[in-house]
Amino acid sequence: MRPDAVAQAVDAALAAYAKEPGPLLEILHAVQGELGCVPPEAVPLIADGLNLSRAEVHGVISFYHHFRERPPGRVVVQVCRAEACQSMNGDALADAVRQKLGVDFGQTRADGAVSLEAVYCLGNCACAPAMMVDGELRGRVDPARLGDLP
C-alpha cells in the first residue's frame, strides 16, 4: 500500500475522531473504510496520534474479527454459520458457496476477486439461510441457485 495513502487515511480519521472520547474503534473503522484494511504501517501513525503504544493499537485490531491487516478481495462474501441458518441446511449453502467461489473460509482467492468469510448471525434468521455479498444481504438462499457471485 502506498505510504502517502495510508498517512492520508490516518490523518483524516484522526482529524475526524481524535477529539471524541475513546475514539480508537471509530478511527480503525474510518481507516478500514478508506483502505479496505488497517495495514501494519498505519499502526504507529494511529498510536502516535492518540498517545497510545503500538502494542495497544495492535491489540485492539487483533481482538476484533472485523478489522483486517491485509486488503480483502474486491468482493467480500460472508456466509452465516450460526444456529438458525444451520437449521435451514446452512451447511449445504456453505459448501455450495465454497465450491462456486473456489476458495475456503477465511481466504482470498488467488486472483484477488473475492474473499470468503464465516459470520455468526446477520439478523436474518427468519429468512434463513442467509449470506451477505459486498454488504448486500441475501435471504432464503437456495444452494442450487446462488445467483451472481464473482
Binding site: E20, L25, E26, H29, F63, Y64, H65, H66, F67, V119
Partner: peptide
C-alpha cells in the same frame, strides 16, 4: 446520542 459501531465480536 451518538452511534458507535462494534467490530464483529459477540
Amino acid at each position: 446520542i451518538s452511534v458507535r459501531l462494534g467490530a464483529g465480536a459477540y
